[in-house]
């Protein structure tokens, strides 16, 4: 009896551990698909960062749409990788999210511009429609303007390895 009682803390702990394990397994965000996948890219009329002219469409080709901002440290971290992708001939469109256009221009001058063009989204309207909850986020959009995949967080070689297949499939 007394011996068994000594196991009580261990059993409680194991029970808690199992609870945690189940809980964590359930909430696997990396496989949680964005509800927007398979849907059309939202409509927008916004200015570009570069020329300040109004634009309302993405290019008619498979593109990466990258949501970024100068206030976002992770965006800085992923920027070099975007430059590399651009150099490999991959089309990237930027959404400059809740940011200052002047700062954005400076940033592009300082770190290089991997984007075909940047859509300026100072109020975060487009971001809201895309369900963005924090920069950086990256979407794969095909030539018909359908969203095919989404990644939350910085884009790096590991992530790209997984996304590249989706990207190839869109061509």
């Amino acid at each position: 009896m007394k011996r068994l009682a000594l196991f009580v803390p261990l059993v409680i702990f194991i029970g808690m551990g199992i609870l945690f394990w189940i809980g964590l397994g359930k909430e696997d965000k990396s496989v949680l698909p964005s509800p927007l996948i398979g849907k059309a890219f939202p409509q927008f009329i916004l200015n570009t960062v570069e020329s300040g002219e109004s634009t309302n469409h993405l290019p008619q080709e498979p593109v990466l749409v990258n949501v970024w901002a100068t206030w976002c440290p992770t965006c800085k971290a992923e920027h070099q990788f975007l430059n590399k992708l651009a150099a490999e001939g991959i089309s990237i469109v930027g959404i400059n999210y809740k940011d200052d256009t002047f700062k954005a221009k400076q940033w592009l001058k300082a770190y290089g511009n991997p984007y075909l063009f940047n859509i300026s989204d100072p109020d975060g309207q487009l971001g809201l429609e895309l369900g963005v909850y924090g920069a950086p986020e990256t979407f794969l959009v095909d030539s018909q303007g359908i969203i095919r995949a989404k990644h939350v967080g910085d884009l790096n070689a590991d992530v790209w390895q997984k996304m590249a297949a989706d990207f190839e499939a869109m061509k």
């Binding site: 369900g131 909850y133 924090g134």
Partner: peptide, 13 residues
Amino acid sequence: ENYMPPEVQDALE
């Protein structure tokens, strides 16, 4: 500024 309260994030999703 990068932070979104988790409940809000959930609600949006």
